[in-house]
Design a protein around this nucleic acid. Structure first.
Lengths: 351, 351
DNA sequence: GCCTACGATGGGAACGTTCCCATTCAATAC
DNA sequence: GTATTGAATGGGAACGTTCCCATCGTAGGC
């Protein structure tokens, strides 16, 4: 319990153990086997006694491995991002890596800035969930050999690894469920797809799959905070004179939230109009009558991102980028109870 | 647009500008005024041309200011923590500071580890929201002069600044609202208070204030995942033979979630039994009939934390610690509609 | 017109590592 | 017995900064 304000240096440990600093350095740089057991013990003792801890700054200066992984998150208040981040974090911990997270608040300037911050700390890999319409900076980094993993979105001009939801599969699962429940008319609500490839992918698949399944499919895409536009879009869709059982499919969790708000404002009872969302959130179970969702395996996605990073790191060569796509889990609740036919369905978490 | 893989050094800039590295260093260390305008321009040009960016590693090695603030978060998946973190982040940005966040997942070991990580990066201040039953490590840091701010909880034996909710005020506001709405019997549900001082404070105030207001108050404290215990506790309270209008007050957002789950499982209609929560969450508006909450000013709290840090940093002396307490905002919804009297209340966000 | 002082600049030694290159010593090969 | 190896260790030069301490003018006080 040394109450020293400044931590001990490698030199002090060396002196205390009666060995050279090189040996201590080796001890802490994963070259322990090269040292005789006697020396190892002496170093361990001295380090313990002095409360030594390698200084990552000095380490990073010289260019050694930093043990740092960077992560760029577009919106820290998005529960999905946080969930994945949690997965990434756990995976890093298991690998003995430290994670440095930066929130870009969907601001390209901030993104650029944070990118600079991360790289200046000599991160060994970067996991990116940010918007980044201009991937040039990222492309340059990747070109320089920094392992890069794109989370939930791809960026044109970048041949990096990607990890995310199997969007095609997800949309198909959603449509199949809706069809099975008897809905024949579906509105897909999404945030502006220009900003993120995953939105684009989901939208495109919705259009093609709803057609091939002979569903009456429509798409509504808008800014998240454009409540007026959302109201108008929903009105147009819901007020149409038709006998077809009708449902709404939300492109992600934030959209689900916005849509439910809008529906409640219009006093539309859920279940009669079917509702289904991509992304499972705390409250989906609570909102009457329970929202059917496709849950993303966020922990697995985070884990996979870190795995990809390590793989890239290991192989000095840069092979073709790999895309890892995860299948969501369908969580059925009563917001997709077949209109006028099914009995209310029991929440699956409380059988 | 220099496509160099490694960024330029201060020496290269100096050479390019025809000045000494000391001058360049000064230029970037906020001593710009000491340089002649001609030199400033030459340095600016050279730096621009070479894409120079100071290396924080080298900077940190030598002991200069790092511009880094550390934050320890107990649970990144807690929306309240994230909201505050977002406030902290914004405040840091405004001050030109970078934020390094570590999630401790409520694990003391991890907390210790992350603390070591942060300090090894020479952070200039630390904002702590973690559980940290053993504050020794923190106490030592604070003793060594590291500016420290405790968020939403205080730690015994530490005289650090504190920022958080005015718990007494919050509880009183809640009770007053419940009384005004005609409830006479209130159950306060909280997570185990041993872990966090804010829980303790809220519970204590609930006990004293409900007594002084002649409410029939009861307390139920348990682990968040102890659904069986929660069920039992709620049963005992709700099944009691009494005519008194009855309500439940939840100690924080997580508790609100758990309680609503339990109530829905028991098919207890909200509003008849009053329900009120501390912490405002996305979905509180959506769950029928809308949950009355006390919203914490999370951005202001984050901002205040950073302000405290800067203040500590500025004054070399260490004065008595300051506690900053924020007043919550009451958001009235129909979960506290007076039983059997009031007409349904309109959600305040959609008048 | 000289000494002082101050403003502008530069040289070099740290900071705590890693890593290249010795050096030592013993074991094996000839 | 000498040469050849290789394993175990140490010395010292980087890495890119900051900061102390020169150095150099030049303006002001006498």
């Amino acid at each position: 319990m040394p109450a020293t304000s400044r931590s001990a240096t490698i030199l002090e440990v060396a002196r205390d153990a009666g060995v050279s600093k090189t040996s201590v350095s080796r001890y802490y740089s994963g070259e322990r086997e090269r040292l005789s057991t006697g020396m190892q013990q002496r170093i361990a003792h001295a380090a313990e006694r002095l409360g030594y801890q390698p200084n990552p700054m000095a380490r990073g200066l010289k260019g050694g491995p930093s043990g740092l992984v960077g992560m760029l998150v577009a919106d820290i208040r998005n529960p999905f991002s946080v969930a994945v981040m949690h997965g990434v974090e756990q995976a890093c911990r298991r690998q003995g890596l430290s994670l440095m997270v930066c929130n870009t608040d969907n601001d390209p300037t901030l993104e650029r800035q944070n990118l600079a911050l991360l790289t200046s700390y000599r991160i060994e890999g970067l996991i990116v969930n940010a918007a980044g319409r201009h991937g040039e900076a990222l492309a340059e980094l990747a070109g320089n050999g920094l392992p890069l993993v794109l989370l939930d979105r791809s960026l044109e001009g970048i041949d990096a690894d990607e990890v995310g939801l199997d969007n095609d599969r997800a949309i198909d699962m959603a449509l199949d469920h809706l069809i099975e429940r008897g809905y024949r008319r579906v509105l897909f609500v999404t945030e502006l797809p220009a900003r993120a490839s995953s939105r684009q992918a989901r939208m495109a698949r919705f259009e093609s799959s709803s057609m091939s399944r002979q569903l009456e499919g429509e798409v509504l895409s808008l800014e998240l905070n454009d409540t007026a536009g959302l109201d108008r879009g929903l009105s147009a869709f819901l007020d149409a004179a038709t006998q077809q059982p009708t449902a709404i499919l939300c492109g992600n969790g934030q959209v689900t939230l916005a849509v439910i708000r809008a529906l409640q404002a219009r006093r539309v009872p859920l279940g009669e109009i079917g509702l289904m969302g991509i992304d499972e959130l705390d409250w989906c179970q609570l909102v009457t009558p329970g929202i059917t969702t496709l849950a993303q395996p966020t922990d697995a996605i985070g884990q996979a991102a870190v795995d990809r990073l390590r793989a890239r790191q290991a192989e000095r060569t840069t092979p073709e980028p790999r895309h890892e796509r995860f299948t969501p889990t369908l969580i059925i609740r009563d917001s997709t109870r077949r209109p006028g036919i099914d009995a209310p369905h029991c929440d699956e978490t409380r059988p």
